[in-house]
């Protein structure tokens, strides 16, 4: 690990000023990504600014049924919060299926959105990687790409976005609140993640030093019957091969409202809008789900080892829809 300096920020304004004004400074929150990146030499700041003392770790119930998660709220605290569990079970489940209990105690919600990809070539300083070293190529193409994405890829990058929570948050239409040197602004979660295109090094539409102060989830009826299904080789402590976050409201046997996120198969937390469109008003039954899933995955691009993920993603989505529909039928809220 390269040497770097360390400082602790006392308040949000100071933190934003410290990092925003210095391209060589980076935030340190839970550390589960940042310390890992420092150790493998992908992150190379001259200084880290520890923001763990900033007063943005709260979890707040909003009037009208929404929830506001502080940027530094820990994953474990967000997952345990009664409002999250009751109103947005899909998020609580996604959080608890992410990483391990220890990592969830450390990792912040903001950091979860900012985490880096797990692509082995991104992590290996000796390999070609357009995300780490723009223009160097993509060693994952033709490499060991079993875990790589089939949706949202480009010829420059096929790394999978690793977050579970962000998949749920995209389905929940969450908003990211930022504070930068220019002030505060908000970005819809789906817009917060950029497709790699020909600039895979650019992952978010934000400036250096902009800080996630909160993630806000709006109230919605369908979110109460929501579910997260994560498929992975082993039973726990592994990134998804495929996952689906589903919020579904069925009325009179038809899909009244549905929102779907896909994980493990795409370069960003994937909002399955094609599938949602296909499901609108459709009979709440397996045939509809299969049609919608096929629609969503129609644009998927298989690589050397990961073609199975296309079929797996379809089935994961179908299963998640079925499960969620059965929750609604029983009137359960998760």
């Amino acid at each position: 690990m390269r040497p770097f300096a360390y400082t602790r920020a006392a308040d949000v304004a100071a933190a934003v000023a410290e990092v925003g004004s210095d391209p060589g400074s980076e935030y340190l929150a839970g550390g589960t990504t940042e310390v890992d990146m420092l150790r493998i030499g992908v992150a190379r700041p001259r200084r880290v600014v520890d923001i763990n003392d900033l007063p943005i770790s709260g979890i707040e119930e909003l009037p009208g049924g929404g929830v506001r998660l502080g940027g530094l709220a820990r994953m474990s605290d967000a997952a345990a919060h009664p409002a999250v569990r009751g109103r947005f079970p899909v998020l609580a489940q996604a959080l608890e299926k992410g990483a391990s209990a220890q990592l969830r105690n450390m990792a912040s919600m903001g950091g979860n959105l900012m985490q880096r990809v797990r692509c082995a070539y991104f992590r290996d300083g000796g390999a070609a990687c357009n995300k780490r070293a723009p223009g160097s190529g993509c060693a994952a193409l033709g490499g060991v790409d079993r875990g790589h994405a089939v949706l949202g890829t480009s010829e420059h990058c096929i790394a999978t976005h690793p977050s579970d929570a962000a998949v749920a948050l995209t389905a929940l239409d969450a908003t990211v609140h930022l504070r930068g040197r220019a002030g505060e602004r908000s970005i819809a979660l789906d817009d917060f993640f950029l497709l790699p295109g020909d600039t895979p090094e650019r992952e978010h539409p934000i400036e250096h030093g902009e800080l996630i102060t909160a993630i806000e989830i709006p109230a919605s009826e369908e979110a109460r019957t929501s579910h997260y299904l994560k498929v992975r080789d082993r039973e726990s402590y592994e990134f998804a091969l495929a996952s689906a976050a589903v919020a579904l409201l069925v009325e009179d046997g038809r899909v009244a409202r549905v929102r779907i996120g896909l994980g493990g198969v795409a370069t960003k937390p994937w909002r399955a809008r094609r599938a949602e469109a296909a499901l609108a008003g459709a009979p709440a039954e397996r045939a509809s789900y299969e049609r919608a899933a096929a629609e969503e995955l129609a644009a998927a691009v298989p690589r050397r080892m990961n073609a199975f993920k296309i079929e797996l993603a379809r089935r994961t989505m179908v299963r998640a829809l079925e499960t969620t529909a059965s929750l609604g039928a029983r009137g359960g809220t998760g």
Binding site: R118, A120, S236
Partner: peptide, 21 residues
């Protein structure tokens, strides 16, 4: 492929059974 080195030389990528398995 083509390089001849282990591609998943980590405990995150070489999967061992965990308690839940």
């Amino acid at each position: 492929p083509g390089r001849g080195r282990w591609a998943n030389a980590s405990m995150a990528d070489y999967l061992l059974p965990v308690n839940a398995d």
